[in-house]
Simulated scan of single mutants.
Amino acid sequence: MFGLLDGSLKKPTVPPSTDQELASWLKNDAKVKSWILKSVDRSIVLGLRPLSTATKMWKSLSDTYGTISTARQFELEVELANLQQGDLDITSYFNEVRLLWTEQDLLTAALVSGPASPEVQRERQKIRLLQFLARLRPNYEAERSTLLNREDLKLEGVLATLVREETRQRTQAALDTRPGPGETFVFSAAKGPPRGHSSPAARGNGSNSSSADVFVAYRPPNQRRDVECHHCHEKGHT
């Protein structure tokens, strides 16, 4: 059916063609037009519907979207340069980056074709992986250093390593919030921290008042002095 797109399969004329040949061409042309309309964004469909043949639709799409846009290439480079992991998890961060990579590949497909294409693609993937690692949050520094020392730096291995580390960090964070041996949960019905553990601000003004109820996992002073309270910032309880 590709001849209906590039115009090489011309519409039969009567005569010399038969009515059957014309009917077959019209049927196939309508089929290709429906494929095109189902394959593009709805906003594009409105501009294609008035066109009478698949050839005209294809030419319109080619003229509009088939050329490399230098402005869009620049925009993609800026978006990639500014993209950071931030609050995203590893998978969401990678999906954001992959969308931009995919559009880059589509725009520059013609530029990297030819005998040198495999080498160009490998070098591009390596640079992309390095940029991806550079924009990770600082808590992945150990894994980043390990990955950079690998000779066979591949996307699948990088993602697997980072997802495992992300899972480990989430599990460790959950364990750190659980009470350990010798801890008791204390709920203060009054506003402010439990008695004997007033916040620095409260100690300063002689008041135990606070803007919210406090739920504290209290550790005796001789246990876990490295733990800091998220509310009053004293050591020994959470």
Rank of each mutant, 00 (worst) to 15 (best):
E141R: 08
T102G: 02
S207C: 08
Y218H: 13
L162I: 04
S188F: 01
S39A: 12
R224S: 06
L100M: 03
H230I: 06
D19W: 01
P194K: 08
A109L: 09
Q20L: 12
Q131M: 06
S207Y: 06
N82R: 09
Q104D: 05
A142W: 01
K10L: 14
V186E: 13
S198F: 01
T238F: 04
L80P: 07
V32L: 09
K33P: 06
G7M: 07
V78A: 09
G114K: 00
E165A: 12
N222D: 07
T108W: 01
Q121Y: 06
D89A: 04
G86L: 04
L61S: 10
N28T: 11
K191M: 15
T55K: 10
N139A: 06
L80Q: 10
I127G: 07
T102D: 05
A202S: 15
Y65G: 08
R224I: 02
L175D: 09
P115G: 05
N82C: 11
H197Y: 07
L26P: 03
F132T: 13
V214Q: 11
I90T: 06
M57H: 04
Q131V: 08
A189C: 04
R144Y: 00
V97T: 11
L153D: 01
L130M: 03
P181A: 07
N149D: 10
V158C: 08
G196S: 01
R219L: 07
G206N: 08
T55I: 03
